[in-house]
Design a binder for these strands. Sequence first.
RNA 1: GUGGCCAUGGUGUAAUGGUUAACACAGAGGAUUGUGGUUCCUCUGAUACGGGUUCGAUUCCCGUUGGCCACCCCA
Length: 451
Amino acid sequence: MSITKKPVAKKPGEATSKKTAQPLSSVRGMRDILPADQHYWRKAFEAAQNICDSYRFDRIETPILEETPLFVRGVGKQTDIVEKEMYSFETSGGDKVTMRPENTAAICRSYIQHGMLNLPQPVKLWYWGSMFRHERPQSGRYREFWQFGCEMLGDDDAVVDAQLALLAWKYMQSLGLDTVVHINSIGTPESRLNYRNALVAYFRPKRNRMSEDDKKRLLKNPLRLLDSKDPVIMEMKMEAPQIVDWLDESSKNHFMHVLEYLDEVGVPYQLDPFLVRGLDYYTRTVFELYEATDDQNQHQNALGGGGRYDGLIEILGGKETPAAGFSIGIDRVVSLLKNRETTPPPAEEIDVFVAQLGESGRKRALALFEELRTSGFKVAESFSKSSIKTQMDNANRMGAKWTIIIGQKEVLDGTVIIRDMDAGTQEIVDAQKMAQELKKKMIQKSAESIS
RNA sequence: GUGGCCAUGGUGUAAUGGUUAACACAGAGGAUUGUGGUUCCUCUGAUACGGGUUCGAUUCCCGUUGGCCACCCCA
């Protein structure tokens, strides 16, 4: 809603600049999703909705704000997310809250809070929403970013893990994106602890060749050494112990089953013995989705990831409940969709444009527009313009097939002009018969275009 | 948090240590005040911010902010 000011000629010597307010821009790392991009976002959303409907997942929405301890306990105190990336603050009422950096912990909270353990298990939920992490923005990384995700709570069967990976992969397929699932198992917290010790034992003697950063990681979170891109570490890694060899029997079995199920449904996967994820809650299966490409450099940005988190619900104060899930980075998906499509999306088709002349014409036009809209036409207008030229120009640019013209004369006669925009011909019809006449013309036109 | 590159209208690009910062697209208006596509005309609109060097800075230097990219980490 804006009031257009008539341009006023400036007189010489007149003060030209009142101080204009500093223009504001969006907060760092957060961006507008503009109309021009909505096409892709809608595609991504509808694909998610469709696939979740067909796999019988129910949508859930949780608040953006949660109590800070939810993430501290859920995601893990030692993780980078909690240590330095959360948007946390205290409300005027003294509550410590955080803008969700991810959604799994919140969904578990909701599961507990609403007694979903009384529903048939597993409970299958999906979500779509934005998450917040205070990181330095870069390619494919924003401080507000959108995730689509699925969670299956209340079942520990390997088939659940496989179904989730399948669903995530199918989602990408449905958008025309070829992906590969990188998968690994990190076992139980105990087996992970043993593995961790083995890793430390392996890397410690080589410490003097490591960067400061990596030395720190060796102390704090040795598993993270595994996805270091430092060539020195990459080389050391070749000989490093692999977690598969430290898994307990039951985790090993579980993992084997997951892989068998994936084979069965033809999901392309790649075993990645060094895949560990950055959130503390994962147990057993972990996986990430990458674009299937030969380009090695592509591997910095996962399109999505997930896994099993059997301990999380209990950590959050619920009964011991196994669960698994994944999330997909929609910003990254959309960026792939965009740069894959070479031709811009077609503009929405317009059937009829309503043009008006004079005040009485404009009044009638408003009503005609409503009539056409409610009888199912795709209608457009530029009621705020009074020049017929400008209106015709707009009608043309919007690609309207017909234009209804209503001026003073037509109002008096009870008629409207229907102009065929392709042919440039027009005829006067009874205003009562406008809709019906247009329908006829539409049918004619579509018949012509078929033959 | 660290590093590299960068910053001119809404967008994409020019130019310059010295009058009024140019062009294209987009936007607004117009070329017989009742008719679109082509064409033509007019208008709107920019040197990110703050210091410094200089007679003079949009141009050179420093700082800040922001952007892009990489690291870290993740989606």
